[in-house]
Write a protein that binds this DNA or RNA. Structure first.
Lengths: 236, 236
DNA sequence: CGGTACGTTGAGTCATATCAACCATAGTGG
DNA sequence: CCACTATGGTTGATATGACTCAACGTACCG
């Protein structure tokens, strides 16, 4: 078998395929981006950056899955979001010019491009369409954060777990056998929902008893999406 | 006594005094802003906009205090943030081009300027410094939202209440008699912390017993800030 | 003077966290 | 190859923080 080549993706192509924010750049800018970026590979467990770091650039995900989380007072993780193909992370710290307020860790082996801060800033300054789209991105994420605050503050763990499952279905999809296309430990699930690992385990097996899901280790098969929606009290 | 005149503030002056984002506009742009803005007065209880509204502009606060909140599943409010002199609200919805994801209600009688969306967008397009500052603003707020998610998910109500008191001290200050310079109902406090009104009442009187605060109806006098910091588990 | 909104307190309940024990699996090193 | 260890998953027992419900006090307002 032929040795696997390291194939560095071309920004011009990738930005369209992945639908990343960079599709709003001009051809010239894409050439610059392609030249300046640094292609990197990481495996599960690798850390891209850590809370408190001064950040000199940000990452655009080409493949794989990253979890972005904060570490709470007692060392417990709170997962803020996931990033996958076409998404960027650490841009918040770069743009607000603050230290990283989150850490990022690889969940599924990934290929990413590291892009120096200055490039991003210069694009914002010269390309107003791009700037506007970036603002849109940040503002959209802000809206999601606000929703999540309300949910955590007001909903029960049960409701939130159902909601998170729906959110994961939305973000990562399910295969032809209805299996959720992201593999998380029970602890990670707990760290999204904001609860204890044991609670997730108990609730998941309740969902299983209620024929909402089927469990096979980390594989979660969705049997009744409508049922989950009902539990989660989300309308849309 | 002479009748009080309605004095419409001049953007050129106000932006500097209040330190609002508009201080990054050029003199010409400020003239435009001043011409296009609509000056309005509201009293306690008035609603500036509501969740689900399509927004045609945003607000810059000249005086008074506004609470920005989401309404949860069962009608309970979750206060997301407050806005005071120099701050802008509803810009998130304008920029992400989404329906309002929050409502805004007057806490202390206020004077605000309403600014049509197009103006904001055009400034972003023509003034890259301004655009960058706006991005900074959104990204900073996003960082705060992420922190709050972690807090609500991991801290006890007691810790959160102490933290919120500190945050209010920071945002609104205390007078020479150590009184917190914002007046909130117990219910509103509960809706920030994300708990029941009764819990806030009980914990506040615990804080009082512990000589951390003194209570006089809605007036909260801060006796021991260090003590609150210790309870809240915040470092800084 | 009755009404409305807010504040307070007590009692009871329940969801969820915590603690502890145990199993399964896989990787490691001698 | 086997003991050893680490990691993750599961279950049960127990504790408790926080919510809910209900009653009542207080203050302001028309």
């Amino acid at each position: 078998m032929k040795q696997q080549e390291i194939h560095i993706p071309l920004c011009e192509k990738c930005s369209l395929e992945s639908g990343s924010i960079f599709k709003y750049l001009s051809p010239d800018e894409l050439v610059t981006l392609n030249y300046e970026k640094d292609f990197r590979k990481y495996v599960r467990g690798d850390i891209l950056y850590q809370e408190g770091n001064r950040i000199s650039g940000f990452f655009c995900i080409h493949s794989g899955i990253i979890k972005v989380f904060k570490t709470g007072f007692d060392g417990k993780e709170q997962i803020i979001r996931f990033a996958k193909k076409g998404e960027i992370i650490a841009y918040r710290s770069v743009l607000s010019n603050e230290l990283a307020c989150t850490s990022a860790k690889v969940i599924e082996d990934c290929q990413v491009c590291f892009i120096p801060s200055e490039i991003l800033i210069s694009f914002i300054k010269t390309n107003s369409t791009f700037a506007l789209e970036l603002i849109k991105l940040a503002c959209h994420e802000l809206g999601e954060a606000n929703s999540f605050i309300t949910d955590i503050a007001q909903k029960t763990v049960r409701e939130r777990l159902a909601e998170i499952l729906l959110l994961l279905i939305n973000d990562f999809g399910i295969d032809q056998e209805q299996n959720l296309q992201i593999s998380l430990t029970r602890e990670e699930l707990a760290n999204i929902v904001g609860t204890a690992t044991e609670s997730v385990i108990r609730l998941l097996s309740e969902f299983k008893s209620d024929r909402l899901v089927e469990l096979n280790g980390r594989r979660i098969k969705i049997l009744n999406k409508k049922g989950l929606e009902k539990i989660s009290n989300v309308f849309n």
